[in-house]
Amino acid sequence: MPITTEPTGRQRTPQRLGDRVFSGASTGAGVLILAVLAGVAAFLLVEAWPAVTAPAEDMPGGEGVALYVWPLLFGTLLSALLALAIAAPLSVAIALFITQYAHRRVATTLGYVIDLLAAVPSIIFGLWGVSQLAPLTVDPTGWLAENLGFIPLFAGPASSTGRTMLTVALVLAIMILPINTAVVREAFRQTPRLHEEASWALGATRSEMIRMSVLPFGRSAIIGGSMLGLGRALGETMAVAMVLSTSGGVTFNLISNGNPSTIAANIALQFPESTGIKVNALIASGLVLFAVTLAVNMTARAVINRRREFSGAN
């Protein structure tokens, strides 16, 4: 064919001005984002460095930067993973309800309400968590401490204010629910009819059809959506800062007053009163958070993208 055998070997389509402006602008925007990201990373590295090299006793707590950051990282991971453990199954259930069971009008309304949740500022969740949810958890956690206290998670003593890791996890779960649900719902909605019909034709009930066709198709979206939610929970600041009562230590006890803080909440609470090397210590903790969220988000994207290859019958 004449078109593909041009003597230069490489095809050049003539460029229009509009195309060139548009591609220039979008390339510029892309580069800018990368530059900002690199700038932030560089700032964190440079400002965190003094905390790493400083003598251990200059750090808050007096045992070096690693031991300073570790409880915070632990608190961050614990609250986020706990929130995820609550939100992930819930979002799958909601997505299934919306895409498979609900009447179309109910489904649309519910989908809309869930999306609205995403628009609520986190300070509102914080307010609600500390003034409404926390008091509500006091009695149930008291019961947990009394009856299931042998499980380390519920060792107690139960907090009398309810400002516990458990409450934080619940608030965070509600906050990440919209993004989790949105990703999973989209995947479920896109289950190829072909695969659904394969199940139906074998005489599957709806729940069997969901298990054979919908869930396998949505599996990577469930993982990807969860990790996006996790990323959000890791970085959440205000809600945690307002709700969690912190007094240090690394513990799996979810219902007491003595909780480790999270990196983000700790920075928000400490930064205004910090000077000198203490600021560097906070920034070092920020660097750790940055790295963790970046890794989680990148993994999430990778998992979600992999779904494209898995298109099913070809």
Binding site: L194, H195, P216, G312, A313
Partner: peptide, 8 residues
Amino acid sequence: RPNPFPTM
């Protein structure tokens, strides 16, 4: 169109 379950 052939529609085997892709994950099976």
